[in-house]
Design a protein around this nucleic acid. Structure first.
Lengths: 139, 139
DNA sequence: CCTATATTTCGTTATGTGGCGAATTGAGAA
DNA sequence: TTCTCAATTCGCCACATAACGAAATATAGG
């Protein structure tokens, strides 16, 4: 019970994970699309998704070689409330607006193309959102 | 905006901090009472309180030598929603029930006595709640 | 079966966080 | 002013976590 709540709060305490949740408002996404959105390595993205899944903030389904993530179809009241709170807090943020634009572009592309580019090390075709706080370290 | 949200989610992702929030349902508490409840060092407790304060999940007021913490009198809608979610999720938990009992005992005592005992290294007069997950490390 | 590929898991590294005790601060009390 | 003491800040340690690339794990297609 407490563990469930803390899992959710922990999952929501990272901006990349809240970005995924907000993106899923528009429907389910496959991992390569989320990789493209976050502009992170696939392994890192996968870790974030597993944390969201553990908190039951997303559903996951496998179809062929692709994993699709979506908002939970039957959330518990606590999860439902957490998602409502998150959307309420972040839906108007400039980060979300930027992501919505970027996502529209991503959805126009063939997911297979995205994956190909990602394995070719060109992780990030889009500029880092301007208000992203320390999105990526430059060593 | 996002920063505010992440501050709140981070503040809520630690059990000791949620315990403080739940305890404050019963009214404001001074630091020594919270130290007694959590059974942590005053410095650690103070850090937790500063994180709650930064997230605007608590108000702080100083009276004479004591600091009193309370639920926010005028929370923003997002903070209000976060607190409602937290109470909804945790109010029925056994941890909260245990803390409510313990708090009733603490409130019967003179806060000055609590502070005296705390400076005398006898931090914890009460047993650690039985379902506390890894409340304290033993080296 | 073998190959290609989408995703996850593993190992590593840098940074963040919770915990404590010691030192510091600040507001009565002597 | 000086002393006391509640609370905070500081310095340190152990452990958690976000990031990456490499290796492992499926699964579709040849």
């Amino acid at each position: 019970m407490i563990r469930d709540f803390l899992d959710i709060a922990t999952a929501l305490s990272d901006m990349n994970r809240t970005r995924v949740l907000l993106a899923l408002r528009h429907g389910e996404l496959c991992v390569c699309q989320i990789v493209e959105l976050l502009c992170l390595a696939p392994s890192t993205t996968s870790k974030h998704l597993s944390i969201l899944k553990r908190a039951e903030l997303v559903d996951a389904r496998k179809q062929a070689r692709w994993m699709y993530y979506a908002l939970p179809a039957n959330p518990t009241p606590i999860v439902q409330q957490a998602i409502a709170w998150t959307f309420n807090a972040l839906e108007q943020s400039s980060q979300t607006k930027d992501d919505d634009k970027l996502l529209a572009d991503i959805l126009k592309q063939n997911p297979a193309d995205l994956c190909r580019r990602q394995s070719g090390k060109v992780n990030c075709y889009s500029p880092v959102p301007e208000n992203a706080t320390k999105q990526k370290e430059m060593p």
